[in-house]
Amino acid sequence: MSFDIALTINGLHRVVAIDDPRITLLDLLRERLDLTGTKKGCDRGQCGACTVLVDDRRVNSCLALAVSLDGAVVTTIEGVAHGDTLHPVQAAFIENDGLQCGFCTPGQIMSAIGLIREGLAGDDPERIREGMSGNLCRCGAYAGITEAILEAQARMQLEHKGEAA
């Protein structure tokens, strides 16, 4: 049995045929849609490397069945920059050494974008660390990641004020 599902992925509307309901959103992105920026780490919801935004909320794409997400809006790491202009969180990760090997980085960045959007951590590093506990970094770049999120959040608030003015 095949299901056609509609997804908006990084702004593009797509109708995807799901020929096996076992396909996770992660495998759909990587294996069928060539969006390999989203990483498969543990594939069990423990590491956060597969984090994407579904309807603007960060989730583990390895634990979401694609067929269940019919109609959803999905944002992956491929969809956050504007052309050659990096997303402020991407730029801040580079500037603050928020990575070493880089494997967890797409998930870290999508999780950070989700965290900032939730708007609850403020500029408290402890709340940022707690809010990012679902993203593991085996290289241990946590200090840089926290700094990057603080900086990106401050920059985004300034830009937002600029737009409002």
Binding site: G45, G48, V59, N60, A64, E118, M132, G134
Partner: peptide, 9 residues
């Protein structure tokens, strides 16, 4: 409980 991603789902 869990992580922010899991709590969202």
């Amino acid at each position: 409980g869990a992580s922010a991603q899991l709590r969202n789902a």
